[in-house]
């Protein structure tokens, strides 16, 4: 016992016992719900027979992956997922920033609050409901096409034309998520020291110059963090939204990795489903690590998540 108390590391732990005990539930949560289930990834390398269990099933080497990439649908699903995700990232990433900047400029608090509430409200609606509403709005008999016809145009097949469908998908996705995404930027905006603005005002900078040279640079770390984190989800293209909005005619561009995995799971082909899921996870991991590496490299070690 005397030996242990003299050990400096143990001593440090003992001193912070209170803090450590607070972090234990969180660690336990991640361990139980996020790390232990990873053992199940071995299913991807097995000829999985459910009744034999994960460890009782025979090994299959890389057979599942060979089947996966040899199939007609999976490579296409990966391509579609990437296209949709990259579009979402490149177009959608800046909307929350712009919204936060604009909200930040509003001086009337009541007005600001109501706009903020209105913009993040859609986040709480399920895509089951939103999907139905959008199908109605953009359908051939919907109000948008009624307006098009009113002005003498030909009805536009918003939901069955590949390019239009993706456009609608991205646009409605932004509409649903921008308000919610702006919250974190608003939080970091409130953390910017007022003395910076005061100094700028004294130097004669107008609002636009202040935004450009103070606000935006202060938001960059948050933006980089969020960008890196969203890269990890690049093979997650928004299952709920697509599942509730797609149809046969846009199958070629809208069938994504997650819809594919669901189909395999429902067919009780868990080996293939796990292989697809694992592929998705590995790609996400590589992207997050890679992006963090580059962020650090470019900023000479100042930016990055870790």
């Amino acid at each position: 016992m005397t030996d242990a108390t003299r050990n400096p590391v143990f001593d440090k732990y003992r001193r912070h016992l209170g803090l450590i005990s607070m972090v234990v539930p969180v660690l336990a949560f991640f361990l139980i719900f996020h790390y232990v289930p990873m053992v199940g990834l071995v299913i991807a390398f097995k000829d999985y027979v459910m009744s034999d269990g994960v460890f009782g099933s025979a090994w299959a080497g890389l057979d599942n992956f060979a089947r996966l990439f040899g199939s007609e649908d999976f490579p296409r699903a990966v391509g579609n997922t990437l296209t949709i995700s990259i579009l979402r990232l490149s177009v959608g990433f800046f909307f929350p920033v712009i919204l936060a900047l604009m909200l930040n400029e509003v001086r009337q608090m009541g007005y600001k609050r109501s706009i903020q509430t209105l913009t993040y409200l859609p986040h709480f609606f399920s895509w089951v409901i939103l999907g139905g509403i959008f199908l109605m709005i953009f359908g051939g008999a919907g109000p948008v096409n009624a307006a098009v016809k009113l002005f003498g145009g030909k009805p536009i097949t918003f939901l069955t034309n590949d390019a239009w469908f993706i456009t609608i998908l991205i646009a409605t996705g932004i509409w649903q998520g921008a308000g919610w995404g702006a919250i974190i930027y608003l939080a970091s905006l409130s953390g910017i020291s007022p003395s910076l603005y005061e100094a700028a005002t004294i130097d004669g900078a107008n609002r636009w110059q202040q935004t450009l040279h103070i606000t935006l640079p202060c938001l960059v770390p948050t933006m980089i963090t969020l960008f890196i984190l969203s890269l990890g989800g690049i093979l997650t293209a928004g299952f709920d939204q697509i599942y509730n909005m797609y149809n046969f005619q846009v199958y070629d561009v809208a069938d994504i990795v997650d819809t594919y995995v669901l189909r395999r799971m429902m067919a009780l082909d868990l080996g293939l489903a796990t292989a697809a899921g694992m592929f998705k996870g590995v790609v996400g991991l590589v992207l997050v690590v890679g992006a963090n590496f580059f962020a650090k490299k470019i900023s000479k070690g100042e930016q990055g998540v870790w």
């Binding site: 390398f45 000829d47 025979a58 057979d63």
Partner: peptide, 15 residues
Amino acid sequence: TAALIPTDPKSRERL
């Protein structure tokens, strides 16, 4: 290792 593990073609026969 995963790639070298031999596949057992008979594993399903017993089903």
